[in-house]
Design a protein around this nucleic acid. Sequence first.
DNA 1: GAGCATTTGTGCGTATGTATG
DNA 2: ACATACATACGCACAAATGCT
Lengths: 262, 262
Amino acid sequence: MVKLLLPHWSPGLVETSVTFGSPALDRGAGIALWRQIGAAIEAAIREGQHSPGQRLPTEAELAQRFRVNRHTIRRAMEELEARGVVRVEQGRGSFVAEDVLDYPLNSRTRFSEIIRAQNREPAGRILRLVEIPAEPRIAELLRIRRGRMVALAERIASADGRPVALGAHHFPADRFPGILDLLRENSSITHALAACGVPDYRRRVTRITAQMPSAEEAELLQQSRSRPVLVSEAVNVDGAGRPVDATVTRYAAGRTQMVVEF
Amino acid sequence: MVKLLLPHWSPGLVETSVTFGSPALDRGAGIALWRQIGAAIEAAIREGQHSPGQRLPTEAELAQRFRVNRHTIRRAMEELEARGVVRVEQGRGSFVAEDVLDYPLNSRTRFSEIIRAQNREPAGRILRLVEIPAEPRIAELLRIRRGRMVALAERIASADGRPVALGAHHFPADRFPGILDLLRENSSITHALAACGVPDYRRRVTRITAQMPSAEEAELLQQSRSRPVLVSEAVNVDGAGRPVDATVTRYAAGRTQMVVEF
DNA sequence: GAGCATTTGTGCGTATGTATG
DNA sequence: ACATACATACGCACAAATGCT
């Protein structure tokens, strides 16, 4: 195995490159060069040398490394893109395709169950726990008077270690006085509500729109500021139909897809 | 990739300014200046001097016109924003708030019915009608072999004259041979399918994600290129459950909100 | 907002190998 | 042996999109 020197390019965002091993191309006969190159790139990706969403070397660089014309690289990439292995964007570069997370919407939507159903490992981390006066919109959703106190829990949720969603959960503070302490110990919303006497809840409405992320949101979600986030606004109600939780969640749009089935 | 046709009229970004009439401020007594200014701006908006989404004059300009300090203008705008009349964006300007269109998702989703239910006037215009080989994703949704011909209808839908959505409807060409001619005469999808022997259809799945618009898309939707679009991918099936239509629709995210109710 | 560097997209011309008739 | 067609590969130039200053 011959290691090639890496160029000293500055990655800017979190994007490094790894060699594709020694380009053992068989120029002589049999398989077309672009097929061999495609297979080599795909193998490198499958091996984990390039993780999902990460940027691949430029076409020019790959051409140099494999010692072929850029057209040949392009032919290989074309194939890989058609097969869904990579994603090519004009002016930006080529990226390892991300497996899009299907986020089904129904009345029993629970983050961790959704993630596990797709064979991934869910995780949640609390970012902030505070009591604040309810904003007008939140008050309306929770059917409380605006300005009444709400417990706000900001949480980042991830699947297999990749951040997926930023959730801002609002609970009426007078009804659930100890909920922040419960969440401090266990970041599960379902668990906290159960401990507060709400054994089960269901989602009533979900409103979905798209926005550009703030600098902080983009950083937390580990995505570019120039890509949008899906914003969902949901209300969960208890068995009696009373709102227990108004949640505004921001999803990394490139990695997530809401699915509504009928 | 589906390319959209360019319009023959290019509205650019609709941003002009209109005077707020003669600023007859009562400096003497009674009502605070910022209240009078707020009322004047709101009146101008209600009168239609500034249409939804349009940019308002800068704070500096307003201050000059009303002959007050910029702080006074800001106080007025603060109130208008809290009341949802305008939207203020740091570094961009102030805009007349757009009435967000609720787009309910269910198995009977029909564009014109949704718009009419919100007391607006729906309209549709066909942009392009062509037969093309099915892209892999479309073929998968329609359950046909990739490369088989599909009839593609690109349509722009609007409510009260404001563009709302760009839809790319794909029909299996062999099953609906005359559908393009039907759509040429009447832009209603429901009407065309009925004439092809599909009296009723229902939506089975909808997938929602967000993207940045291309230059053409932004222009057609009359929105800034720096704001995202909601992308929905839906399959309509006939009574027997066979796919009749795979549609990819792009909605102006600032003006539209998907609503899922349970 | 204008200019600039980077990167992918596209077109054209050329050459070579391989399968077909 | 020859003509033809097609896929492969290379070289060069410029267009278009993006991101940064």
